[in-house]
């Protein structure tokens, strides 16, 4: 079974962390992965940096620009990850934008992910219909779970479609925003989390965007399976460095 599906079966709320590969330093990818696993993260999204990250706010934009300046690129990331399964046992997801994947070759990209032991892919700008028509078979052949997003504006009909197409979890974007734009949740978000929960979808939901600390993690996961922290973690890395990662994870799960 795919490690993502295994993790989703565990009897706890999952803490997933996003970071941009190649940031703060080019060689930080593996140390960050190790530190995250050792301090108790349940799942990791490895961000493949892109020059024009449309869905991201300033924090992830800046980390992406810095990572590219440091020299990060697709082949190098794969190279850094080649022995990662000797140490990392938690699910690993590659998250990025579709163009770098397209240039690498979707099939070659998926094969490489499979070889390394990547479990899933999140490409926010690879739309559901194109995925299904052109790429689903390639993802599946390589054992990769593709993760789709929903937002508070996504229609019920489309949520059902996305649920049916999902093999892992649904990435539930907490509010209509780019990453890092908002922190904290109001009644509106809580109502949205509950509304989706009440739909009894087959796919568990993991909330992303706007989670930065223990309180927001707890609110986000009250009626969902887990939550993803991205911008807040990147900011932490910028200010405190890779060596202090454990204190960040511990602060979310005290």
């Amino acid at each position: 079974m795919n490690r993502i599906n295994q993790a989703l079966k565990a009897d706890k709320k999952l803490l997933s962390i996003y970071f941009t590969a190649g940031y703060p330093k080019l060689e930080d990818t593996v140390p960050i992965l190790n530190a995250l696993q050792n301090s108790g993260a349940d799942m990791i999204e490895i961000g493949l940096p892109f020059s024009d990250p449309l869905a991201d706010g300033p924090t992830i934009q800046e980390s992406s620009t810095a990572a590219l300046k440091n020299g990060m690129h697709t082949e190098l990331l794969f190279e850094q990850l080649k022995d990662i399964r000797n140490t990392i046992t938690i699910p690993l997801i590659v998250m990025g934008y579709f163009n770098p994947m397209l240039q690498y070759g979707v099939e070659a990209f998926c094969e490489k992910c499979h070889e390394i032991g990547i479990d899933g892919i999140i490409m926010p700008d690879l739309p559901l219909d194109v995925y299904q028509e052109e790429y689903e078979a390639i993802f599946k052949k390589n054992g990769l779970v593709n993760v789709f997003l929903i937002t508070p504006q996504t229609s019920v009909e489309r949520i059902k479609q996305i649920d049916a197409a999902s093999e892992g979890f649904i990435y539930m974007v907490s509010s209509a925003s780019t990453t890092g734009a908002k922190t904290g949740f109001g009644d509106e978000q809580v109502a949205y989390f509950e509304r989706i929960s009440a739909m009894n979808l087959k796919s568990p939901q993991i909330v992303g965007f706007g989670i930065s600390n223990e309180a927001t993690f707890n609110t986000a996961t009250k009626s969902t399976k887990g939550a993803i922290i991205g911008s807040a973690f990147i900011k932490f890395l910028t200010n405190n460095g890779v060596a202090s990662i454990e204190s960040f994870i511990k602060s979310i799960r005290s």
């Binding site: 892109f50 697709t74 934008y97 579709f98 163009n99 770098p100 397209l102 240039q103």
Partner: peptide
């Protein structure tokens, strides 16, 4: 340009071999 994705459209675009928009 080569075929790629920019601003939500698949089209010809100037980019690096790695798919970063130049």
């Amino acid at each position: 340009g080569k075929v790629g994705i920019i601003h939500g459209s698949k089209t010809l675009l100037m980019q690096t071999d790695d798919g970063q928009i130049t």
